[in-house]
Structures are given as structure tokens and as C-alpha cells.
Design a protein around this nucleic acid. Structure first.
Lengths: 137, 137
DNA sequence: GAGTTATCCGTGTGATGGCACGGGTGTGCG
DNA sequence: CGCACACCCGTGCCATCACACGGATAACTC
């Protein structure tokens, strides 16, 4: 059992794993590298102001066409189109074509945790973070 | 008042804002560009497998030194150090120096929503997302 | 004091990302 | 039938990024 237990700072006995117990505890519950990749890819989709706001807008109103989305966000139609392209490729939004225009909405299988936690809670957080003026509590 | 209301697809009267009501509804509740930027920057910090897992590990065990974190994650010490550097610059983790080693922990002011929603809920999501085999519920 | 160890910092590099640009497609209108 | 429109797609440009590498610092051991 190596009998080390906790190693005080200078002990060269344990060498690299300084506190193996904690390392093991962390390692056991840690998401795998692959899970980390998945989480990162889904968060990367939200980690862009344009895309985040596109999703938020589509969460508020069921459906919007590209031009109106661009207008609501105050970005170029090209930027909106590009953002939607990425989100669509990722399967987060769907497109309905009516005549010459395309209406977007959140995909049916839009991950509910993502909507709740990122769209609602985190956006709410960023509302009051930053340099809040008075800061009650 | 332009009297348009809803414009059917082909009406050239409303021109760009096809359905002004929805645009207005979206625009009113939409996070501002600046808020979008803030949200994006904080999400960008999580949108990296190494950093996300670093934070997760630090959330599980109070405190770990760089080498042990690298060991727990299975990444190079340099990668861990770099990730911690970024997180530290952003103020999400703090460093305590003891002798020649540095112990990291989540910052005191670590945004609670971030911990709950990103670390716990979203990681839980990415556990069962992907191609889940049997998928009980 | 010399050597080793744990970490930090600045820089180079390959990779990725957001978006503007130009050209293309299908649609509605006169 | 020809024009304008709303949108899509492929591509190029510039910025950012994650990480490796090398050197520097402080501390512990002998």
C-alpha cells in the first residue's frame, strides 16, 4: 500500500502523483476525453454571439425567416445565413421553405438541457454579470 | 401605421421585415450584442475539452496541483498548465502556492449558474447523448 | 552551492472559425 | 419572358486558439 497516504510537500517518495487519493477521486468521476469533446462541440455552437442570439430568438418566436432574423439581431443577412448554416448542419435548427424564403425554427430534437441551461439560465446570468451598476446582493 | 399586419409571402409592401410583429417580439427580448459577447466569452472558456474537464475535476475535489491535474485528465503538464493559465486569467480559478508547487481551485466568485448548468447538467447530457445503446428513458 | 523538481512565461506554428464576396438557384411579379 | 428578390453555397482572408518548445524562476535535497 506504499503507506504514503498524504505526502508532505517535500517527500520524493510519491514522485508525480502528489495526492493520489484526490487524483483517483477526480479521475473516477471525470468525463472521458470523448465526452469532453462532445460537450465542447455542443458548447462551441453556443459560444458565438450570433449563433447564441439566433437560437434565443428562435426560442422566443416559433419561426422566422433569414432576413428577419438578421434584422432582429442587427447583423448582415450573410452572417445570419452563415450562422444558421452551421446550426443546421449541427442539427439544432430546421428549415421550412415557403416560396422563395426559408423559415427556421429550433429542431424538434433540440436538446432540452441546452435550451434551459444555456439559453435561459446562462443568458440571464450574463445580463447581471459584467459591471452591474448598483448590484443589490 | 402601414396597415400591413401579416404580409403573405409575395407582398412587396413590407419589403424586408416580412413579419414585423415577430421581429419586434424577438428584438425586444433578445440579449444585446454586448450581452451576447459576454455569454460567448464565458461559454468559450467551457467549450474546450481540457478546460471543461479541468473545471469539472476542481469541482469534484477542492484543490489539485498542476501535475496531478494533468495526470487525472491524461494530458501533458503543459496543456494543463496552459488551460489553467487561461482559466486563471479569466478569473475562474485561483492559485495557491505551497513550496514549489501550485494548487488550483475554483475561484470564490465562480459563477454558480455555470457550475450547475454547464458542469453538471450539460456534462450529464453529453454522457447520455451521442449514440446511446439501450437508452432506458 | 550544485542538481533536481514543479511550475510559469513568451513565442512559434498548425489548425480552426467567422464572415464577406461572388456566383448560382428557385420563386414571384409584371 | 425577363427582372428582382430571398436565400444558398463555395471560397478567400484575417483573427484567434490550443498546444509544444525553450528558457527562466523558486524551492527542496544533498
Amino acid at each position: 500500500m506504499t503507506a504514503t497516504g498524504k505526502s508532505t510537500p517535500g517527500l520524493p517518495d510519491g514522485a508525480h502523483p502528489v495526492d493520489p487519493e484526490r487524483v483517483e477521486r477526480a479521475r473516477a468521476r471525470l468525463p472521458s476525453a470523448e465526452e469532453g469533446d462532445r460537450l465542447a462541440s455542443v458548447l462551441t455552437l453556443m459560444a458565438d454571439p450570433t449563433r447564441a442570439r439566433l437560437l434565443y430568438a428562435l426560442d422566443e418566436v416559433d419561426e422566422l425567416c433569414v432576413g428577419d432574423l438578421a434584422l432582429a439581431l442587427g447583423v448582415s443577412e450573410d452572417a445570419a445565413s452563415y450562422g444558421l448554416r452551421v446550426l443546421r448542419t449541427a442539427g439544432l435548427v430546421t428549415r421550412r421553405k415557403e416560396g422563395r424564403m426559408a423559415f427556421y425554427r429550433l429542431a424538434e430534437g433540440f436538446p432540452e438541457p441546452l435550451r434551459q441551461h444555456c439559453l435561459h439560465r446562462l443568458i440571464a446570468m450574463s445580463h447581471r454579470s459584467a459591471e452591474d451598476e448598483s448590484a443589490d446582493i
